[in-house]
Design a binder for these strands. Sequence first.
DNA 1: CTGTATGTTGAGCAG
DNA 2: GCTGCTCAACATACA
Length: 554
Amino acid sequence: MGKSAVLWFRKGLRLHDNLALLEACKDATHVYPVFIIDPHFVGPGKVGVNRYRFLLECLTDLDTSLKTKYNSRLIVLRGNPLDVMRSLLKDKQPFAVDKLCYEFDSEPYARSRDAEVTKIAKEGGVEVTVSPGHTLFDLDEILKKFKGTPPLSYGPFVKMVESIGPPQTDKDAPAAIPAPPAAVLGKVDESYSVPTLQEMGCEETPHNGVLRGGETVGLQRLHDVTRNEKWIATFEKPKTKPTDFNPASTTQMSPYMKFGCVSARKFYHHLLAIYKRHKGHSQPPVSLLGQLYWREFFYTVGYATNNYDRMAGNKICRQIAWVNNEEWIEAWQQGKTGYPWIDAAMRQLRREGWMHHLARHAVACFLTRGDLFCSWEVGAKTFDELLIDADWSINNGNWMWLSCSCFFYQFFRIYHPSTFAKKYDPTGAYVRRYVPELRHMPDKYVYEPWKAPKAVQEEAKCIIGQDYPEPIVDHAEASQECKDRMKAAYDEHKAIKRAPKSEMKPDPDDEEEDDEEGEEEDDDEDYSIYKPLDGTNKRSRKGKKASPKKKTKA
DNA sequence: CTGTATGTTGAGCAG
DNA sequence: GCTGCTCAACATACA
């Protein structure tokens, strides 16, 4: 009597180099390729329409490949994965299996879910196998090298990773995948097929982006993009242009990596083959291989760090008294800050689910330590909703990076919300595309339209404050106060580090001092643009410069 | 403990 | 368009 196995797709939405799939096929007479639509990821503010569309395209592509090449199909189940798995593994509904195979997922939600499912499988007498494959290396293996604590800088990380040796060679898709029995295929009808966007609670909006989901298009993109070997070999990330669109100046492989449409190992070996043919190729951190290592880096740190996606309880994250201003956050999210470059990037994000890495830097810096001084968690959540390639480990890592909360600490280096983009795109083609209000604004003013004389605004059919917003903050003023606040937060951090005993409770001296100084309300220097609108947030006072001299006595 | 090298991509300026 | 300096000065990693 043969065995039947479930291949549970989550990430790793591919048939090539899929170790879990190969495991499922081993000694099996039937393999059930399954995906579960989890209501946890459905709802307002969770996963945006662009990423859902991409996911559904991935699922459709898998289903099509399974049908045309393997006489099989994708079975899409709906519901809480624990309920679905309980019914499948214990009640043997809608079919019975002996083995459950899936790819390891390092994110906290997945880890607790998978632990529960493993328990359920055990109770149902179902064997479970977990395969690596989303990252280049087994994350536990990397962590062991660092005794559980990975470095917070890239260089030492890469040095260690390279000492492991190359990742396993990527495997081809299986020659055959034993299909589910005909009786089951007859039973699983339309209600087990790939859902529509509507079913996911999304409006059927037009496809605005150029990135289509799926293993087939992902592999095609890898093929197309690597055809220019010289470009691949000499690629340096900081030299690519954030204002390029159609085509973008980078590979745009990230959504395919996020969902595992393309195997990281395949990408790696493809790159190395090209490097072999092109001596003097670029190097990490800026090379393309360097980008794969960055992914590995953030995956490793995210795996090793508790509360990685928030500031509170996060050991590696600087504790900073951000002041969330809901009006500013809304303006930032909607691309209505009055800074055309920032707004263009945010509108590209909302419309297409993608923006260039340096655009992400610019808008992240603007929201947090550069201008608005709002929490990076807000930004990370926004990106997590809107980016097609939103990847938990990488997204939160980059937000900590850009907000100078971890990894990067040079808070005095602030991206200018207009001149930064101007050097890449002096005529503002990118701005004009995504902020059409400014389409007719002369080049001279397209990045700073509030400086245009009234007559010019009228001529351009764009009155500032009416057709396009005034800047919500003055950058010179805002960035200076942000720097002061960052300095204060860093000084506080240093003081705590020097006096670890007082770490648990706030210094009583400081409290007193604060109260006393609370009376200096007539002091003009106390003025802050970061006071919350409702006046209930006491944290707005904490941004005051700490006195380093006082701290040293502690 | 101290010194040194290093840190993916700042802005503004000079040459 | 490129390189390199200064601004003022953050950190980590390691010898």
